Amino acid sequence: MIKDYWIEAIQNIKEFESIGIIEDGEIKKVNDELSNIINDQFIQTATEEGIARREKILNLTPFADDTLESRRFRVLSKWGDGLPYTYRSMIERLTQLCGEDGFSVQLNSNEYTMLVRVELTVKRMEDEARNLIRKMAPANLVINVELRYNQHGTLKRYTHRQLKAMTHKHIREEVLK
C-alpha cells in the first residue's frame, strides 16, 4: 500500500487515506498492465490481446468458441516456421498443436506413405494438423490425416440401451465419457 511509504504524520488523516486507496488502485492497474506487456512478448504466456495481435498479423480468424489455449496453438503452428523441417521437428510441432496423446503417426518409408490420426479430444485441430503436415512433410509422401474415431474398446463399456439412445454420428465422432 502506498500509505506505508508516507511519513507517520499524514498516514492516519482521512483525506490522505482516501487518496491512498485511489492511488493503490491506479498502481495495481499499472502493475497489471506491465505484467500483460511482459506476458505478451511470448506466445505461450500471451493474453487475449497479445494473441489477437498475432492473429491479425498472421491473418488468422479464431472460432467463436475457441479457448485461449487453442488460439495459442494455432498461432504457434503458423509462427514457428523454421527450415529445415525434420521428422522430429514435425512431431514436436504436432505435440504443441494436439498435445502429447492427441495424435499418432505411422510412417511407412518403403511405400512413401504417412498416416496421421488426430484424437477426438482435439478434433478441432485436424485441419491445422493437416496443414502442418502438408507443409513439413516431403512432397513425395502420400499423406493421410484423419480422426481416430471411437473404437470397439471404448464402446464395450456401454450397454446396448445406452448406445441406442445416441446417434451413430455421436457414437462415432464424439468423445464419450
Score class of each variant (00 low, 15 high):
Gly99Ala: 10
Leu115Thr: 13
Arg117Met: 15
Ile13Val: 13
Gly20Ser: 04
Ile51Met: 01
Asn39Pro: 06
Leu68Ile: 08
Arg124Ala: 12
Lys156Met: 12
Pro62Met: 04
His152Pro: 08
Ile51Asp: 00
His160Pro: 10
Glu69Met: 06
Met114Asn: 10
Lys56Gln: 12
Ser104Ala: 03
Ala64Trp: 09
Trp79Pro: 01
Phe73Val: 06
Phe16Asn: 04
Thr45Asp: 02
Gly20Glu: 03
Thr113Ile: 09
Met90Glu: 12
Arg124Val: 07
Asn110Trp: 10
Gln41Leu: 13
Ile21Cys: 07
Glu33Leu: 11
Tyr112Phe: 15
Met125Tyr: 06
Thr47Leu: 07
Pro138Asp: 09
Thr61Tyr: 04
Arg161Gln: 14
Glu111Val: 07
Glu17Leu: 11
Leu83Ser: 12
Arg161Asp: 14
Ser35Arg: 08
Leu132Val: 01
Asp81Ala: 10
Pro84Val: 03
Gly153Leu: 03
Met90Thr: 12
Tyr112Ile: 07
Glu48Gln: 08
Gly20Gln: 02
Lys156Pro: 05
Asn144Gln: 10
Arg74Gly: 01
Gln41Ala: 12
Glu100Asp: 07
Ala64Phe: 10
Arg124Thr: 12
Glu126Gln: 13
Lys156His: 10
Gln106Trp: 09
Thr113Tyr: 11
Thr67Glu: 00
Met125Asp: 03
Asp24Ser: 03
Ala46Trp: 00
Lys56Leu: 11
Gln151Thr: 07
Glu128Cys: 06
His152Asp: 14
Ile143Tyr: 06
Lys78Gly: 05
Asn150Glu: 01
Ile37Arg: 02
Ile37Met: 03
Ile27Met: 05
Glu17Met: 11
Gly80Leu: 06
Gln41Cys: 09
Glu119Met: 15
Ser89Arg: 15
Ile27Ala: 05
Ser18Leu: 14
Thr61Phe: 03
Arg134Val: 13
Thr86Ile: 13
Ser104Arg: 06
Leu34Pro: 04
Gln151Ile: 09
Phe63His: 04
Glu100Gln: 14
Asn140Ala: 10
Met136Ser: 07
Ile38Lys: 15
Phe42Asp: 10
Glu48Cys: 04
Met125Asn: 09
Ile91Arg: 13
Lys29Ala: 14
Phe42Tyr: 14
Met125Trp: 07
Val105His: 05
Leu107Asn: 02
Leu94Tyr: 12
Thr45Glu: 01
Asn110His: 13
Asn150Thr: 01
Arg88Lys: 13
Ser77His: 01
Thr121Ala: 15
Ile13Gln: 08
Leu97Ser: 01
Ile143His: 02
Gln44Thr: 15
Glu92Ile: 15
Leu58Gly: 05
Thr113Leu: 11
Leu76Tyr: 05
Lys56Pro: 03
Leu147Arg: 02
Leu120Asp: 13
Leu107Val: 08
Val145Asp: 00
Ser104Ile: 02
